[in-house]
Design a protein around this nucleic acid. Structure first.
Lengths: 259, 259
DNA sequence: ACCTGAACACCGTTCAAGT
DNA sequence: ACCTGAACACCGTTCAAGT
């Protein structure tokens, strides 16, 4: 319904197009390649045109984070909508909060059949799967200012699961802090995943092997199980799942202790 | 013993002085103010002189991270040295690993009196205290390349505690992943601590309050307990301690289950 | 309303050169 | 061995101007 004629190069810019193009660049070339100039070129536009749609680079990154979490939210709500064998609503955003029972401190957990751990685990693993497609996104999410509408909706849903699982507001609040970034599908590791840092580390470690007896012992024990591996051996998915299970189990124990 | 005469401005540059000055700048003005030029000026030197001591900015940041973790390590070893009521060695770096019993999978936990949770908790809280003095440091520690000698020593000590506590190498490995960055005293929160983001969030939240029933309920419940607070209400220290306790308890359960 | 062009201040970094 | 000066490519961003 637009003025047609030459429809190809004249799709007008918009915040959505800007953010989408930014995600493309970050996915393809890393977040370091996401500059205002590169983004403009990718959109076939002059760099300064971006500033009509986006206040500055910080706002751009906030918007990009919002887009990624929007992606997470869409997949989470789709999965929770179809898998729901008790609630009714689906598709609508409000479906993330189809709860009801969670009242104040120590209220009786009336809905007894609900497995909050399983529900939260599923939600978190969906979020993680999305973030694996955007490995640069965690760095954006930890910046101040990344708290947009989608993040709010996502965590409202996390909170809904906890409340429905029998947590008081207060305990649910603590639980969300304890989960930290894991609640939205990532945990920052201190050990570089697959970089050239593996070389550096190996070199460093070799020089002071005798000063690190326990790490050395662990490396030996693990390379015994899986011969061809030094430092890039870890099964990230398995470690992440183990981590959330420890947390979810610990939180369930704390919840029951508090009843 | 230098040529004396004008001893003030002529302390020659060194990696240590460069890193120390970088820490000063980051502490005083934030990590964003740490530029090669600003660092040079702070040292009374031309910007290009830095490159004689440091390969590039990435290497500078790696070195700064190493300095901070060195600070953590020093305080940790000092505390563990004086508080040790069973081991003998103190002061030496190898004291961090005064263990011995932790053999392979499911070995008998001979040293029964050792409270690994308490030991690890103390270590972690010391690390956290140091990081609170350098709030910009976590961002450096999550970069690839931050794995220097001090980080290695620190985690060798963490591993020593776990092994002495009865973990197998394999379980200890999982445990360290589960702890993640908390093992060295920080956890990244998705909600900005004290920024102007609080205004944005409040505004955003106000606009869609009815769509976030659970978050709204929680805010009300918590502001009921503590009237003058909206989003900057959280007791970070208490939340952090709750988080590690959940993890440590969960890990202890998993360890006992595996025996 | 939406986009552009030239310019500014500031980065990290190179290179050849000084002492 | 250690430091400097000038220069380069690249940032984010301003401002006044175009359509």
């Amino acid at each position: 319904m637009t003025t047609s004629s030459d429809a190809r190069p004249r799709t007008p810019l918009s915040r959505e197009r800007v953010f989408a193009a930014a995600v493309e660049i970050a996915d393809a070339e890393g977040i370091g390649a996401l500059t205002m100039r590169a983004l403009a070129e990718h959109l076939g536009v002059e760099a300064m045109s971006l500033y009509y749609h986006v206040a500055n680079k910080a706002a751009l990154l906030d918007g990009v984070a919002e887009v990624v979490v929007g992606e997470i939210l869409a997949e989470v709500l789709a999965a929770e909508g179809e898998g729901a064998d008790d609630g009714g609503e689906s598709g609508d955003r409000a479906a993330a909060g189809s709860v009801g029972s969670g009242t104040g401190d120590g209220g009786p957990p009336s809905a007894s059949a609900f497995d909050w751990r399983d529900a939260l685990r599923r939600r978190i693993l969906i979020a993680r799967a999305v973030l694996l497609r955007h490995p640069w996104a965690p760095a954006l999410l930890t910046r101040p200012g990344a708290f947009g509408p989608s993040v709010a909706f996502y965590f409202d849903g996390v909170l809904a699961i906890l409340l429905r699982g029998g947590f008081s507001y207060d305990h649910a609040h603590h639980a969300m802090h304890a989960l930290g970034s894991r609640a939205i599908g990532f945990s920052q590791e201190l050990f570089a995943p697959d970089d050239a840092a593996a070389d550096v580390s190996e070199e460093v470690l070799a020089q002071m092997a005798e000063q690190l007896p326990h790490l050395m012992g662990m490396l030996q024990a693990i390379s015994h199980d899986d011969p061809d591996s030094n430092l890039g051996w870890c099964d990230d998915q398995a470690e992440f799942e183990f981590g959330i299970d420890v947390l979810l189990d610990g939180l369930e124990s704390a919840r029951r202790r508090a009843l």
